[in-house]
Simulated assay, not measured.
Amino acid sequence: MIPFASIEDVIFDVSSALRVPVLILALVALALVLVELGTLAVELLRRRRHTPAALERATGAAAEALAHGDRAAAATALEAVVSGERMRSAVQRMLRQVAAPRGEQGMAKAVADFDLESLRRLERPRLLVRAGPALGLMGTLIPLSPALAGLANGDVQELTDNLRVAFSVTVLGLMTGAIAFGIALVKDRLYAQDLSDLEYIGASIEPSAPAAPAVLGQHPPAPPPAVVG
């Protein structure tokens, strides 16, 4: 039978071994959230002139170009409302589906793939929302054990050093989670706007269904006789 004291020693050793990895991961999480903040700033700059009026003008010009069979001109017209490389790729896929067999399904697939890619790009900030505070809490609790040991032994310097690390990691983790939460909210709104724009573009450039041809010798049904009161 394993003594209870030895189990406590194992848990303490594992917790102590996690101290440096947790501190490193907290710094990595902060670096990642700063990268996400930079990409968000770039995306916001790209959308400065993106307005509903610009979208209507671009889709109208693209539909007119496609009516003349000019896909290159349509792509150039829609470039004004493209927010990034992913949206540009989706628009190009949609243009290739114009007048193609099962083109409507192809356009819907392009829009759905763009939505899935947007969800994938939101995974990292959403993960940092939870990982930042979790790492901060772990970085807070791990140094408390040697800090309390230093307090018991009368070592004030060890107590001070460990508490400084614990509180610093707490602030770092909470800041990482707060920034990541704001980034996730803004990016979620931006990607939802992109999805809405793609759906509008697809509805605008999709050719109307041709009218059913008349059958030779077939006459329209006669209207019902008027009822005489």
Rank of each mutant, 00 (worst) to 15 (best):
M1N: 10
F4Y: 03
A5I: 02
S6L: 03
E8T: 06
A17R: 13
P21I: 06
I24K: 07
I24A: 15
L25K: 03
L30Q: 09
L32Q: 12
L34C: 10
E36Y: 12
L37E: 08
E56V: 13
A58Q: 02
A58V: 04
T59M: 10
A61S: 13
A65E: 05
A65W: 01
G69M: 04
A72R: 07
A73N: 03
A75H: 03
A75E: 07
A77I: 10
L78W: 04
L78V: 07
E79Q: 13
R86S: 08
R88D: 13
A90P: 01
Q92N: 10
R93Y: 00
Q97L: 06
A99D: 14
P101M: 06
R102F: 05
M107D: 09
M107R: 15
M107V: 12
S118K: 09
R120E: 12
R124F: 08
P125W: 01
L127C: 09
V129E: 04
V129T: 12
R130A: 15
P133V: 06
A134M: 15
A134H: 04
M138L: 15
G139M: 08
L141E: 01
S145I: 13
A152R: 13
D155L: 05
F167D: 06
S168Y: 01
T170L: 11
G173A: 07
L174S: 08
L174Q: 05
G182V: 00
L185D: 07
D188Q: 12
R189S: 12
L195K: 14
A203S: 10
A209L: 12
Q218N: 05
P220Q: 06
A222V: 13
V227R: 15
